[in-house]
């Protein structure tokens, strides 16, 4: 139960982090073009790596949920 709870929480965290990535591209665009079009655009690379990592993390959580499901079945038998 506690594990399931923490997974739900972490999933929400991952989602909010993803929203954060998108929102920071949005907010900075409104407050002037100096950041989003900053020379070099290294932040674009950081955001891309973050999205990639979150995507893989999301799949791992799905796998985790499936295994948890199987575990519960075995434990109940």
């Amino acid at each position: 139960m506690t594990l399931e709870f923490s997974i739900g929480r972490m999933k929400r965290r991952a989602l909010s982090l993803l929203l954060f990535v998108f929102s920071f591209t949005q907010i900075q665009a409104q407050s002037g073009d100096d950041f989003i079009r900053s020379t070099g655009k290294i932040y674009a690379v950081v955001a891309v790596v973050l999205v990639l990592f979150l995507g893989i993390l999301w799949y791992l959580f799905r796998l985790d949920k499936k295994i948890k499901h199987l575990e519960n079945h075995y434990n109940n038998e």
Binding site: V21, A29, A44, V48, V51
Partner: peptide
């Protein structure tokens, strides 16, 4: 697609 979209937003 998502990483491409983030890059496109910047570029």
């Amino acid at each position: 697609l998502a990483t491409g979209a983030v890059w496109a937003r910047f570029t």
